[in-house]
Design a protein around this nucleic acid. Structure first.
Lengths: 215, 215
DNA sequence: GCGCGGGATTTGTGATCACAGATGAAACAT
DNA sequence: ATGTTTCATCTGTGATCACAAATCCCGCGC
């Protein structure tokens, strides 16, 4: 077993490959335009072409990978318009998810969010873009899980997935010094039970990330 | 070629299968819980198991089909909560799409919508649930295409897809007599350039459909 | 009549293979 | 030196096969 990414070893081959690639793409392990081959993926995960192909198909279906007319597979290079649209979708759905999570947010959740947020500071100090993206998504996912809306969360993750390589490209090159301010604002709004404030904070957080991507 | 559904014959085998199944599911050709087998699909489309499996994987990834632990595939049976969540997603995204389409909606579009809408009346008279669902989706898609937001439209279609079998089940049994009123309201709001009215009309249209599904 | 084994059959999984088209690099001509 | 052609190689596609697990069905026992 060449690349067993500490996940369920009982899972089927194509599922291991799928999850492995998906995590890598969403967390920004790959740059936009990076090419992949079925045989290469198969060798990396110790499987044949068949499960590699199935995993790639699923990822293409989710927009995590793009496929040329000849069947060549690569991480997508997004246009400006597409980035804006995906950010608008993030705003739309994530504001709703946060709003639904608010009445269910108790102290333990808020403390967990603060812990994750301090982990984010560490990633900035380490200048670790992949760790930063992963921890940032963990912050959002932890909050949204409380919304008890699996279909919405799944759709949001689809959008994150599509933005993964692009986010990596931009977070990789600019040297961040400070934590984005809106996470604190989200936590404060949760603590205060302030729904309009929470909606605004989430919207601002996503928008600020978008501006960074378009700069 | 056993089932060439008048689509691009140059497309690859798995794509033909994928599109064929996807259309059938979205338009309500199948009831919830209906089982499928890879060999059966392959025979129906005149291909081997390999492209059938790839098509199924894509559809499972989109939530159009559900897969048991043993790999068995069937159309999903949605819980009440899931239906409500999907309807909320429809509202969120479709209101946004309609709003974005509004400034671009000219007379030709409005006339096309009216033509589609009268086709809908015909489907009701014929008591043709599949035709009704297909035409209804065509109405919405025609409007949303104007929004120039492909990622949003794609996500909306994913939601339609998940609701397809459930919609069929309910539209199949209750005998509709009249056209739902909100399509006319959508057209009127488009004509008047009334954005708040359009948002309300789309929201009402989706909500009314939801109530029908939960009754 | 009803529940329960047990074997035949169905079904999904993943590896392998032949094939066609795309890709890329080297050799040639200008 | 540059552009073009040609050929070896790479890559995705789809069919087939062996295998294991799940499912189904028939008959037995109660």
């Amino acid at each position: 077993m060449l690349a067993q990414t500490r996940s369920d070893p009982a899972a089927s081959a194509h599922d291991r490959v799928f999850r492995g690639l998906r995590t890598r793409i969403m967390h920004g392990d790959m740059l936009p335009g990076q090419a992949l081959t079925l045989r290469g993926i198969g060798k990396e995960f110790g499987v044949s072409m068949t499960p590699a192909r199935e995993a790639v198909r699923r990822l293409v279906a989710e927009g995590a990978l793009s496929m040329s007319a000849s069947g060549r597979v690569a991480t997508p290079e997004l246009s400006h318009d597409r980035i804006e649209e995906l950010a608008a979708l993030r705003t739309l759905i994530e504001v709703e998810l946060a709003s639904r999570a608010l009445p269910r947010a108790h102290m333990a959740l808020i403390e967990r969010l603060q812990t994750i947020n301090s982990g984010l500071t560490e990633m900035i100090q380490r200048q670790d873009p992949v760790g930063y993206i992963r921890t940032n998504l963990e912050f959002h996912r932890t909050l949204y899980l409380r919304a008890q809306a699996p279909a919405m969360l799944a759709l949001t993750e689809t959008v994150w997935l599509q933005l993964g390589p692009t986010m990596r490209q931009h977070y990789g090159r600019l040297k961040r010094k400070a934590l984005p301010p809106y996470h604190r604002m989200i936590i404060a709004a949760l603590r205060a039970g302030d729904e309009p404030g929470l909606r605004l904070a989430v919207r601002s957080d996503v928008t600020q990330g978008l501006k960074m991507l378009l700069s």
